[in-house]
Simulated scan of single mutants.
Amino acid sequence: MDGFERRREQKKQQILEAALTLFLDYGIQKVAMTEIAKKAMVSQVTIYNYFDNKHNLVHEVFVYYVNKAAKDFEDIVYSDLPFPEKIKQVIFNKREASQQINEEFYRYLMKEYTTGSGYIQTVYEEKAVPYLIDLLEEGRAQGHVDKSLSNEAIFFYLSMASDYVQREDVYEKILPLTEEITKLFFYGIAGERNEGPEGREM
């Protein structure tokens, strides 16, 4: 990529980031191209040169948002955080992200997911699933994850937990219990068991 292409790509990212910030705060319909141009510090003409129209811009912002979410997930999985902390973030960070999304923009995301190009599903299958498998393998290697449990069962459990904590009537009550819920994920209601050098329970 030469200097011109690099600058062009940086300006495109600048526009996408500005549009995403405004869409997350105010939704799509209420945000004018003039506002996006002002926040991105470019002219409206520049935006139209890159995206032709607002419809195309919205779709590109959707793709940008999904890729950004995948990158955030990747950063958690391959970070130096302890394995239990990674699991905690996988379960609870989804709620933090959803709180920042304007309802109209969230509906657009769900519409794209169910009837659109299937881009979210593609990213999930090609990125999120392999990342999560790597995370579980790390957990198994460190002795945090029972080797007899299938990835499918753990995926289901994590999805169920992270979806549940997003509920408005649940989140505030569950937040003070974060540490306990994370412990429940690892040890169940029986509690942590210590084993001796030959694998016998102590």
Rank of each mutant, 00 (worst) to 15 (best):
L109I: 06
I87K: 07
N49L: 13
Y50G: 02
I189W: 02
Y78V: 04
N49Q: 05
Y113G: 04
E126R: 12
E17F: 15
I47C: 02
M33A: 11
P176C: 09
Q29T: 07
H144M: 07
L177E: 08
E201S: 08
Y26C: 10
I15T: 09
L20G: 00
K127Y: 12
E9A: 13
E5G: 12
Q121S: 14
V63C: 11
A190G: 10
I181A: 12
Y64D: 06
A37C: 04
E126L: 14
K94G: 15
P197N: 08
L81A: 01
P84D: 01
A40Q: 04
M1I: 06
P197I: 14
L184T: 06
E17S: 14
K183M: 08
Q142G: 14
D25F: 06
Y106H: 06
H144N: 04
R200A: 13
E74N: 11
D72K: 11
V61H: 00
G199Y: 02
T46Q: 06
R107H: 09
S79P: 07
R6H: 01
G191A: 07
R7N: 08
I154V: 15
R7V: 00
V170H: 07
Y50C: 12
D134F: 08
K111T: 02
I28E: 03
P130V: 00
E201C: 10
K38I: 07
Y131E: 00
L149R: 08
S117L: 13
D134I: 06
A40K: 06
N102D: 12
V90C: 09
F185A: 03
T178W: 05
G191I: 10
Y26H: 14
E138Y: 00
M1E: 03
Y65D: 11
H144Q: 03
E126M: 13
T122E: 14
I189N: 05
D75H: 09
M41P: 00
A32E: 13
E195F: 15
D75V: 14
F73E: 02
Y48A: 01
N151Y: 15
D2K: 05
V129L: 11
P84L: 08
F156K: 08
Q13F: 10
M41N: 05
R6Q: 12
L57R: 05
K127S: 13
L16W: 10
K54M: 09
P197D: 09
L135K: 04
G3R: 09
E137A: 05
Y108R: 07
V45I: 10
R193P: 11
Y106N: 02
F156C: 06
S98W: 07
G199Q: 05
Y157W: 10
S98G: 03
E125S: 08
T34H: 13
G139I: 04
N49S: 09
L81G: 03
Y64R: 01
P176V: 02
D146V: 04
E172F: 12
I36L: 07
Q29N: 07
R8C: 00
S79K: 01
V63K: 12
M202T: 15
A97I: 14
F92S: 00
T122W: 14
S43M: 07
Y171P: 01
M41W: 03
E138D: 00
E74W: 09
L177C: 13
E85T: 14
L22Q: 02
E179R: 14
L20Y: 01
E126A: 13
L22M: 08
L158H: 01
V145M: 05
D169F: 15
I189T: 10
